[in-house]
Amino acid sequence: MTSVLVLNGPNLNLLGTRQPEVYGSATLAMVEDACRAHAAKIGFEIACLQSNHEGALIDAIHDAKGRHQGIVLNAGAYTHTSIALMDALISVEIPAVEVHLSNIHARETFRHTSYIAKASLGQICGFGTQGYLLALDALAAHLKATGAA
Score class of each variant (00 low, 15 high):
I116V: 15
V92S: 01
L14M: 15
S91T: 11
G70C: 10
V92L: 07
L136G: 01
A29F: 02
G43R: 13
H105E: 10
G147E: 13
S91P: 00
M1R: 13
E21A: 01
G16H: 12
I46Q: 11
H100G: 03
P95T: 06
S51V: 03
I90T: 13
G122I: 12
E93V: 07
A135Q: 03
I61S: 02
S114V: 08
A40W: 04
A37I: 10
H112C: 05
I104R: 08
A117L: 14
H100I: 11
A141Q: 11
V4K: 08
T146D: 12
T129F: 06
K65D: 03
A117F: 04
H100A: 06
A84D: 03
L89S: 03
T81M: 07
N11K: 10
F110Y: 15
R111L: 09
F44E: 07
L134W: 01
L101N: 04
T79V: 09
V31T: 14
M86R: 15
K65W: 07
A77K: 06
V92A: 04
Q69L: 12
N74K: 03
A96I: 00
A40V: 05
S114L: 09
L136A: 02
E93C: 10
A149C: 08
N52D: 13
D63R: 13
L12Y: 10
A29K: 13
C125M: 11
D137T: 06
R67T: 11
V6M: 11
I61G: 01
T109F: 11
G128V: 03
R111T: 01
H38K: 10
H105R: 12
A96C: 15
D59P: 05
G43L: 10
A75P: 00
D63K: 12
D33R: 15
G16T: 09
E98P: 04
I61W: 06
C125Y: 07
A56G: 00
E45H: 14
H68N: 07
A37E: 15
K144F: 06
D87I: 05
I116E: 01
I104Q: 04
S82W: 06
S91L: 13
L139N: 05
Q123R: 14
S3T: 13
A56C: 02
A119V: 06
L133G: 02
P95V: 09
F44S: 04
G126K: 09
S114I: 13
L89F: 10
S102H: 09
D137S: 13
A84Q: 03
N8L: 03
Y78R: 02
I104N: 00
H80F: 02
G66N: 09
L57P: 00
I116T: 05
D33L: 14
Y115D: 00
G76R: 06
A149G: 14
H142P: 00
A141C: 09
R111D: 06
G16W: 09
G147A: 10
V4R: 05
L143P: 07
H142F: 15
H38W: 10
A56H: 13
L133N: 00
A135V: 02
E32L: 04
I90K: 14
A106W: 04
H53C: 07
F127H: 12
A64Y: 12
Y78Q: 08
D59H: 13
M1Y: 10
T79F: 08
A56I: 04
V6I: 15
A135E: 05
T79S: 14
V31P: 06
V92I: 12
G66Y: 12
A117Y: 03
I71L: 12
